[in-house]
Write a protein that binds this DNA or RNA. Sequence first.
RNA 1: GGGCGCUUAGCUCAGUUGGUUAGAGCAGCUGAUUUACACUCAGCAGGCCGGGGGUUCGAGUCCCUCAGCGCCCA
Length: 846
Amino acid sequence: MPERPSVDGLETTWLGAWEDEGVYRFDRSTPRAGVYSIDTPPPTVSGSLHIGHVFSYTHTDLLARFWRMRGREVFYPMGWDDNGLPTERRVENYFGVRCDPSLPYDPSFTAPEGPVPAGAQKRSISRRNFVELCVALTARDEVAFKDLWRHLGVSIDWSLEYATIAPSTQAISQRAFLDLLARAEVYSAVAPTLWDVDFRTAVSQAELEDRERPGAYHRVAFALEAGGTIEIETTRPELIPSCVAIVTHPDDERYRDLVGQSALTPLFAVPVPVVAHPLADPEKGTGAAMVCTFGDLTDVTWWRELDLPTRALIGRDGRFAPADFASPAFPSRDPEVAQAHYDTLAGLTVPQVRASVVEALTTSGALLEEPRAITHPVKFYEKGERPLEIVTSRQWFVRTLAHRAELLARGEEIQWHPEYMRHRYRSWVEGLNVDWNISRQRFFGVPFPVWYPVGSDGVVDYDRPILADPAKLPIDPSSDAPPGYREDQRHQPGGFVGDPDVMDTWATSSLTPQIAGGWGTELFEHVFPMDVRPQAHEIIRTWLFSTVVRSHFLHGEVPWAHAAISGWVLDPDRKKMSKSVGNVVTPMPLIERHGADAVRYWAASGRPGADTAIDEAQMKIGRRLAIKLLNVSKFVLGLLEDAPTGPVTEPIDRDLLSGLAELVEEATRSFEEYDYARALERVEGRFWAFCDDYVELVKLRAYGESAAPASVESARATLALALSIYTRLLAPFLPFAAEEAWRWWHEESVHRAPWPSTDELAHEAIPAGSVLAPVSEVLEAVRRAKSEAKVSQRTPVAGCEVAGPADYLAAITAARGDLVAAGSIEELELVEASEARVVVRLATPS
RNA sequence: GGGCGCUUAGCUCAGUUGGUUAGAGCAGCUGAUUUACACUCAGCAGGCCGGGGGUUCGAGUCCCUCAGCGCCCA
């Protein structure tokens, strides 16, 4: 025990000891019922650490430490999500490379020393070479992340580490894909797909976000072939060449007679039918809208339900593709004019075509009035910079729409913390409108384990995929040949081609219980279904939902019993932190400045699900709490040294233990309900009162100089027991300080010590507060008198008269010695009265 | 447009099923001071519990309504 205890440097001491002793090691032989398993979120390894990580991982660690002390064997793995776009972009810029999946693997390729200067010519490399660079770069970042987690004292079993790009993970992801394919719950289809023209990949509904963007309504006249015109309003006039119909509401009297007629598109003179559909909004614009292939998701619905033709023009690069206005696809009544005009548009971007078309519409008189500027929501890929387009392409989809009701029922099976978060899941599932697209036209991810046969005519048959041998997973169809084929048959008539795409990040991270839990091995039976999924609320619709989907299909049950949803960390002005705003706080300096326990204390005081502002003042309070624990431990242990302890006999001591039993019950219940913040608040409050009141009251007795031996031993026994209980109650929150103090008198780690139970506090029961409350009240009156007289608390009290009912006085009598000693009361007089009252007479200064 | 959450002391927040005088910490103010702790201790002050209406013997808590803030979904 040091002379002057300090919280500085405790991290270094105990991190090493925990590792050496294997304190957090998971015992794989434990039966499922004895295990508490955690589906740890694998953070995106993309360079920067964020205080939000510290916040939410602390919450999970509090649960882990509680359940471990409660005797559960805690399965607490750690994963890294290195798949995906953020990594790809960093690799491209850092190494100055670009992935070209058509290139063969070059085993002799060595990475250039990064980072290369910005703007340098990018070198094309094969997918496998590219993936190797991604792996190398993320490996470096993972070291920094791991360092942070360790310094924060997160009680992860680091032997359970996984990465989403690791071969074993890819094997599980591919196996799960083949499993879904065998059940026909995944299918490939050529379909209109949300498309990011910069990343050149499809994106899923879950990755969309609406952004308010300026736009304008353009009122445009379409000539009717039978004579007259019909007017529509559109925000996307550039899509007029893609127009396939004009739609009105079936009940709209204004257009009832026009339905069935044929209109001609302005500028291009392509005939389009006037049709009726209930999704047309009579209140919007003129009540008539043009249907294009494709301007938005409503167009897709109209196109599908009204069986309209396809005139897709926007290509995967976001530019208008060439089109033939004399062909059946674009049957212009005036092909020459149409073609001449369109030829000036082909190859241009969306904004360029819009400007050109508006100009032409104005010249031709089809634009009826000045465009009306508006602000409207536009769909973006959440990581994208330009509005999404809808292009038709072949994609793999997981069937979710057909299982909506079952998936809603799964959501009801989960216990949500906080409870109201279940609404987020429900509203997301209810709002699903397309199946889950899991194909991405990217490179750094898990490839689809399929190839396609090439006919003797050279045509690829996508409807009869060649599946990988499950025993050979993982495979990469771009460098491995399918069963029964040779590599030299790739791209040859009678040969094969590999599926060029990779899976969506969520298609793999939706399998974290299977990945971490070792699906297919014995371990899985010991940990699955898991106890808890901790995560942030903004990814309920992605990670949480997709994990439920996979578990529903693979195992027919929910993947975990509980979902513990963390809030966000806000900056001190209560604004959301984001890179673009530049208010992101990096956590390591905070840990260095205040200590890990202090930062954890701040995180632990954020209630489950509540967005919480970063608050260094709160960290300072946590630091004080840790220091207090060290100091009171030193003091109590100093008193106890070699002194005998006996049974707890004194009423005031028994009262303290009764109160402690209440506290243990409440803290335990709060933790069981996932409310760590409440547990902390109660424990902390009682702990300070213990230090300031109880310890002050009994310390002179515990010194053993004047009191009877039995009462001395009672005080010492109570102090020792209370200290032990408080140290254990605080251990999840302050793992470093609690461990330090605990090891001054224990061999084993506090983090494997049993969570306090009321059994330990068995004593001759006495109602909590029956003695301590009146005594504290009198002590407080004494302190107030001294404080108001501006004298030292050590000033003797010449006389103190306590009036009150008989039981009140009995309580005072029961602790008379302690009270007189703590208050330096020379003469204590008790007077029976109906109301409690305390009169303090200080000694006159001599 | 639908849904969810929040609104309590200057600040950050507690306040279980309605039940004494609404709590804590921080900040503020007044003091103490060295045999655990100045990274301390004691004390004081500070609230129309967002507005309005209702139910009730009794409402911060339940119901209705309005307002503001934030989020989710469309």
